[in-house]
Amino acid sequence: MLEILVIEDELFLRQNIKTILEIKGYVCHEASHGGEGIELLTTLNPDLILCDVMMPGVDGFGVLEHVKSNDRLKEIPFIFLTARADAQDKQRAYGMNVTNYITKPFTITELISAIESGITKENI
């Protein structure tokens, strides 16, 4: 079973994503903010990371930076989940080698296809 780490500060949204992922057959690990996500990653080795951008404390970019600078984690597909839709953020994210960028609100289809193509791309 593929494991996905979801880092999202909004409780209800995080819970909804978890429900969706579990229905779709993934194992979901939750973190309510960037710091917690990084902490989980010390022991966790997920197949994909789904991360919100705007969070208090360590934001999505902080988490991405941490992941990309860590040899063990840097190959893990990393998908941004964000309410920010401006091109500048998107460019910054792709500049940092993010796998995909999903803008809120999103459909389940969008979410799952991003996850699946992310995992496949990295596997090839």
Binding site: L13, I20, R84, K104, P105, I108
Partner: peptide
């Protein structure tokens, strides 16, 4: 505008995902 966008998109995401979960 960014703030409003964020504040609107997050509840919309919850509504969207909740509705789709209900469907599932």
């Amino acid at each position: 505008v960014n703030m409003v966008s964020h504040e609107l998109r997050t509840p919309l995401s919850i509504i969207q995902s909740s509705a789709e979960i209900l469907e599932l």
